[in-house]
Amino acid sequence: MRTGHYKERWSQYVALSDNPTVWAWVAALLAALLIAPVVLDGYSTTLLVSALIAVVGAVGLNVLTGTTGLISLGQAGFLAVGAYTNGVLLVDHHWPVWATLPASGVVAAAVSLVVGIPSLRLKGLYLAITTLAFSFIINHVILYTESVTHGPNGIFVNGAKILGFDVQRGAPLYYLVLGVAVLSVLTALNLARTRIGRAWMAIRDHDVAARVMGIDLVRYKLLAFMVSSFIVGVAGALISLQIRFINIDVFALILSIEAIAFLILGGLGSIGGAILGAIFLSFLPEMIRLAFAMLGGSTASLLGNYLFEIRGMAYGVVIVVFLRWVPDGLIGLWRDIRTYWSNWPLAY
């Protein structure tokens, strides 16, 4: 039964979904994702890899900003910490990539305490500014600790192998990123259905009531910082694997804005929304490019020159439009459509 409340076993209450149709769709999606690099060309696979990395980053930020309500503009900083940890350990210390990926998350989580602890009492705009400042500080630290980070020279990230496969290009990279993305999403979904995720959302919706219900704000806010940054750090490491050369210019402020745009477009607070938003916005520049290419001629070449600016503008427009008119985001639209159809013809 699709809409009823009746359940036969308690375990159904805690299942991610007890609806076979949902599981069938998930299975179909996973199957499609698994065969994608076989049927797609290299360029499309690369796009898909970028989108999946964006999903990991968005799911990570969602823990902090969507679930716990702590607005962060520090995404670029945490991505940089992850990417540099991965690069340094891989290239200078010859760690295997299966160890550098979690290490990137751990270092990012540890660094998150540096911004988390001093900003425990901050909310909203004040926290956003603090995290923004943090991300500039990270840039400077990377630039000036040249002996570790190679400073302005950047790092050529290479030599990442798993079972002999070069996981920095093609299908092996794709499968590694897909695996990490699935793990991140599962982790986020699982946390959300335990006391941990509920404590976070309680803090977001009413922190005094949360405290009275037994939730230690310090502990759960710091935990949100750490879990979020761990996932974002791993996303940073994946970026460094994909692009193979990192310097601080890669981790510009636009990445933080972009990540916030993912969440707002998808629907703040929802894991599904974070995923939808990340995928949609990752493909948006490509869709714009294709649209202009169809117009042909000079507009297309003009666009080629200004793709970066157009991307930034698109994020701005998305944030403004969705905050104002579609506050529940794509996931909210989807829910509305679904209730409309499941109630049809009794709608309204």
Binding site: T194, R195, R198, A199, M201, A202, R204, D205, H206, V208, A209, A210, M213, G214, I215, G269
Partner: peptide
Amino acid sequence: LAVFKHETVVNNLLVGMHAHL
């Protein structure tokens, strides 16, 4: 009112169980 307004009734009640989990 000091409810967790973006969450379901069930989740609000489950937050009340926090100290027991």
